[in-house]
């Protein structure tokens, strides 16, 4: 009976630890998003689910979306929330200031680097016409869902509960306790 309560406790502690470490991470530099960057992101995530949000300093609803992500920023595991600004590298200072304002500067932040934004948009999704904000949800099977416009709290929270369930399942699989109990069975 006791063991039943132990696991949630460990998981909570683990996620608290990861939260603390992500909160204390130094601000990451803006990385330049190129045609091949999405593939690099996908492979670096190694099957973990992630959410990709495209935004711009010149998009009023994007600010509302950043404000929402600010309230949920500790609920994402490291690297599982990726922000890409579609502005040009010459706007880097304004982008960094905006990210800092919403306390999102420690996330995995990118900026469109190509001279031709259409080329980068096309590399991400030919069916995306550039409307912002634009979000993609990559699940563990690497199926993705797209969403145009401001995300609601409900959409983000539903996604977070999915990623949490993935994390719990993966923690359980990798845990020595689980493997021992399966041995004893």
């Amino acid at each position: 009976m006791k063991q039943k309560y132990l696991w949630p406790l460990i998981v909570t502690l683990l996620s608290l630890l990861s939260t603390l470490s992500s909160a204390e991470a130094p601000p990451a530099a803006l990385r330049v998003f190129q045609k091949s960057s999405l593939q690099d992101i996908i492979s670096s995530l190694d099957g973990r689910p992630f959410m990709l949000v495209l935004w711009s300093i010149d998009c009023p609803p994007c600010q509302q979306e950043l404000a929402l992500l600010q309230t949920r920023r500790h609920d994402f595991a490291p690297k599982e929330l990726i922000l890409i600004s579609t502005d040009s590298p010459q706007d880097a200072a304004a982008i960094e200031a905006t990210l800092a304002e919403y306390q999102l500067e420690a996330l995995d932040n990118w900026i469109f680097g190509d001279d031709l934004p259409e080329r980068l948009r096309f590399a991400i999704d030919p069916g995306w016409y550039g409307e912002l904000p634009r979000s993609y949800f990559y699940d563990t099977d690497r199926q993705r869902h797209s969403y145009s416009g401001l995300l609601s709290e409900a959409i983000v929270d539903k996604w977070l509960s999915y990623t949490l369930s993935v994390r719990l399942a993966s923690n359980q699989q990798n845990s020595p306790l689980t493997s021992r109990s399966s041995e004893t069975r």
Binding site: C59, C62, P133
Partner: peptide, 9 residues
């Protein structure tokens, strides 16, 4: 077109 966003278009 339901969109709470900016088409810039």
């Amino acid at each position: 077109w339901h969109l709470e966003g900016c088409p810039h278009h």
